[in-house]
């Protein structure tokens, strides 16, 4: 197995774990944690392809990963702000109980 295939397998595993967390947990914060894990797995793919790809000096995959880290930070801030707002409104973060959009 080439090193690149090893990194891609680890990224696929982390992505699947994050997807399972986002789909199976009740707590909204744990769902956000799962989404963060999926974004990180994508970043690992970008960096691995940049490192073993043919033109690393162009920095394409590397800078895509850096931008992706910045966007993930923005997503985490807004997502957790929404969770806090919903908790203040409905007194719960249990997604099985939050089943209406009416305030």
């Amino acid at each position: 197995m080439t090193p690149l295939a090893g990194y891609l397998l680890v990224a696929a595993l982390v992505f699947a774990i994050g997807l399972a967390g986002a789909l199976t947990r009740r707590n909204a914060i744990l769902v956000l944690i799962g989404i963060e894990l999926m974004l990180n797995a994508a970043n690992l793919n970008f960096i691995a392809f940049w490192r073993y790809g043919p033109h690393p000096e162009a920095l394409t995959g590397f800078l895509f990963a850096v931008f992706s880290i910045a966007i993930a930070a923005a997503e985490a801030a807004v997502g957790l702000g929404l969770v806090i707002s919903i908790y203040r409104h409905l007194r719960t973060t249990d997604l099985d109980e939050i089943n209406r959009m009416k305030g």
């Binding site: 992505f15 699947a16 199976t24 009740r26 099985d96």
Partner: peptide
Amino acid sequence: TGVFSRTWFAGLVVAAGVFAVLA
């Protein structure tokens, strides 16, 4: 009531399927 949602089995199946295809 537990930490996993009512539809946890379907979520697990979807995640396992995604990992199987990727791997």
